[in-house]
Amino acid sequence: MSRVPSPPPPAEMSSGPVAESWCYTQIKVVKFSYMWTINNFSFCREEMGEVIKSSTFSSGANDKLKWCLRVNPKGLDEESKDYLSLYLLLVSCPKSEVRAKFKFSILNAKGEETKAMESQRAYRFVQGKDWGFKKFIRRDFLLDEANGLLPDDKLTLFCEVSVVQDSVNISGQNTMNMVKVPECRLADELGGLWENSRFTDCCLCVAGQEFQAHKAILAARSPVFSAMFEHEMEESKKNRVEINDVEPEVFKEMMCFIYTGKAPNLDKMADDLLAAADKYALERLKVMCEDALCSNLSVENAAEILILADLHSADQLKTQAVDFINYHASDVLETSGWKSMVVSHPHLVAEAYRSLASAQCPFLGPPRKRLKQS
């Protein structure tokens, strides 16, 4: 649940008159999402009104509101027999009622949201009550392989729920002597030191190019640089560091992050930047690179990204790559990247197969709970 924001200063709310007192009302909304995959969808019983329910879910471990999704594969009634019906059901509720908006969509073979439908307002739910769409999607369109909505005969539904909580009022009075504290510009100011090479005390040599930097900042941000300058190493004695395995453009992006906490060109060089972040123990930059690479996972590059993640101990990226390969196994196994990995990294192939087997055979063990970014 997000923290209630402070109200904007009255002088910034309007260029008009300023009242002596004010009130700011925040209506709290808890948002969460749920993904439900139905394997072997074409084998569902086709009687009209037949119901399939998901397991229950909530916004978190401490949330007492429990929900589930309900599907009628062949419609709810005679009117909707040519459609799939989809509903959000409130299973248990400690209150007399709650209000919530919802959005349903289908994830296609690429994991993209399609055929989205959402409620136009927050509906009133009581325990045992459901709301949804009797005519969510035509069955003939859903079952047509050309539309790519049932890869490997799996129907994957994605649901986003927004639950309306209580409202909170914050009130106060205006004073004539309003003090406005300026925003912190530390990142910009440190970035200026790097860009202008002011007050530098060490030189970093990268592929024949020299960059002036500040030992204190490098040591504070990177345990690797800290070790170089702290001990009686040649880098500490000469205040000069030779860097041979990072390209200059990648190095500059890494230094921008060290000084400012930002990497504006990360998406263009996420793979190389991940390697640099791993070498210099820049954990936050490493996770930022993992996130960017996750966003660009595809059938063509899944094997290469899995190898990269394994090489640099990028655990979150590795998990996402394995899950992606499992979901698109029939396509990924035909790529040149996968065939190369079979020869060069057989242990990763074995890991992917083990994960695929456990996903398809849940009876082999208890269900695993899916539970950071600093």
Rank of each mutant, 00 (worst) to 15 (best):
C23K: 00
G111C: 01
G49T: 04
Q320E: 11
K66F: 06
E249H: 05
D63G: 02
G208C: 10
F43M: 05
G191A: 02
N39G: 13
L150N: 02
E210S: 15
S340N: 11
Y123F: 14
C202V: 13
L293V: 14
D331F: 01
R124F: 09
G208E: 14
V179A: 06
K339L: 10
D323K: 08
F133G: 13
S298N: 04
L306W: 15
I106P: 13
A302R: 00
C93H: 14
W194L: 06
E97N: 14
L150I: 04
M1V: 00
S226E: 14
F251Q: 00
K180R: 03
R99W: 10
R45L: 07
V163P: 06
D245H: 03
E230V: 15
K252N: 05
V287L: 01
D144Q: 03
L84W: 07
P367M: 14
M117P: 13
N265M: 07
A357E: 03
F225Q: 00
L266T: 04
K369C: 02
D315L: 13
S55I: 06
Q316L: 01
L311N: 13
Y83V: 09
S344N: 08
Y280C: 01
E189S: 13
L273E: 00
S162F: 10
K110L: 12
V342Y: 02
V250C: 02
P5F: 06
P7A: 06
E234Q: 11
V287F: 01
E210F: 08
P264K: 04
P223T: 12
R139T: 13
G172P: 03
V179R: 07
S336P: 09
Y327T: 05
V4H: 06
D315M: 14
T319L: 10
R138T: 10
E351W: 07
C23A: 05
M341Y: 01
F125I: 00
A309S: 03
D152E: 06
A207V: 10
E232F: 03
L371S: 15
F125E: 01
R99V: 11
L107E: 09
A321K: 01
F251V: 12
L306P: 01
E210Q: 13
L88Q: 02
S171D: 08
K252S: 09
E183V: 07
R354H: 05
G60Y: 11
K279H: 08
A19N: 13
L204T: 13
P264T: 02
R221Q: 13
E78T: 14
R70P: 01
F363K: 15
D166F: 03
E112Q: 10
L371C: 15
S21H: 10
V168Q: 09
M1F: 00
H231N: 15
M288D: 02
S6A: 06
F158A: 06
A350W: 07
K53C: 02
D140V: 06
C294H: 14
D291Q: 09
N196D: 09
S298R: 06
P7M: 06
Y34S: 05
Q120P: 04
D82G: 01
Y34N: 01
C44E: 04
F133P: 14
R124S: 12
S59W: 10
Q373P: 08
L218I: 06
S21T: 12
L306Q: 01
V51T: 02
D77Q: 14
A109W: 07
S340I: 06
E232I: 03
P94K: 09
E47M: 03
G172Y: 03
F251I: 02
L142T: 03
F141K: 04
M228T: 11
L107R: 14
M341G: 05
E189H: 05
D323V: 05
L311W: 05
D166N: 12
V332I: 02
S105R: 07
E183L: 09
V179W: 04
A19E: 10
M176V: 03
S85C: 10
L317T: 12
S54H: 00
M228Q: 13
V126S: 15
M117C: 01
A281M: 06
R284P: 01
L155V: 15
W67R: 00
H345R: 01
S330Y: 08
G132L: 00
E46T: 04
L306V: 08
A303G: 10
A359E: 06
T319K: 10
M117N: 05
D188H: 07
Y83P: 00
L348K: 00
F104D: 00
S295R: 12
V30W: 13
D130C: 07
A116K: 09
M341L: 07
R124T: 05
N174D: 02
A187L: 04
I307W: 10
K372D: 10
S358T: 03
E232T: 09
C202L: 14
A11H: 02
I38H: 08
A359G: 08
N39R: 03
T260H: 04
N177D: 01
T175W: 04
S340P: 01
A302P: 00
F57L: 02
E195P: 10
G16C: 05
V322L: 02
F133S: 11
M228A: 09
K180M: 07
E304L: 05
A100H: 01
L274M: 02
L308Y: 01
S336R: 12
N301Q: 13
S80E: 08
Q320W: 10
V206C: 14
V332F: 09
F199L: 15
D77V: 07
V168H: 02
C294E: 09
S58D: 04
Y24G: 11
N326S: 06
H214T: 13
T260A: 03
M35Y: 08
L150T: 10
Y353K: 00
P366D: 01
S119P: 02
E47P: 09
M1S: 00
I27M: 06
L204W: 08
W131T: 00
M35C: 08
G148W: 09
E210N: 13
L308E: 06
F251G: 09
D77F: 12
Q316D: 02
W36G: 01
L88S: 01
F158D: 14
N239Y: 01
C23M: 02
R124P: 15
S6K: 04
V224Y: 15
T200E: 12
A207T: 11
D291M: 06
M1R: 00
E189V: 05
A292W: 11
N265I: 01
S2M: 13
S197F: 14
L356Q: 04
V71I: 04
D201N: 06
V246S: 04
A329E: 07
S171M: 04
C205Q: 15
K339P: 13
A227F: 14
S80M: 11
F251L: 03
E78L: 11
Q212G: 15
K66G: 09
I307M: 08
V30F: 06
S236N: 07
S105A: 11
M233V: 06
I38G: 00
D331I: 12
E189T: 03
D144N: 08
N296M: 11
D77R: 06
L204Q: 11
G60L: 02
G111P: 12
E20Y: 13
C184D: 03
S358W: 08
K215P: 07
E183C: 07
S226T: 12
R198N: 13
K103Q: 15
L186H: 07
E290G: 05
W131Q: 04
F251E: 01
G172F: 08
A116V: 04
D271G: 02
L86P: 07
E160H: 13
R370M: 15
Q212H: 14
V168C: 04
Q209P: 11
P366K: 10
E230Y: 15
L204K: 00
A270K: 02
P10N: 05
V250I: 02
F363M: 15
F199G: 15
K279D: 08
D272V: 02
D201T: 14
D140N: 08
A309P: 00
E183W: 06
Q373E: 13
L90S: 04
T260Q: 14
L190D: 05
I307D: 01
V29D: 08
F211G: 14
E12D: 01
E247C: 05
P362K: 15
K64N: 11
E290K: 04
S96E: 12
F136D: 00
L297V: 13
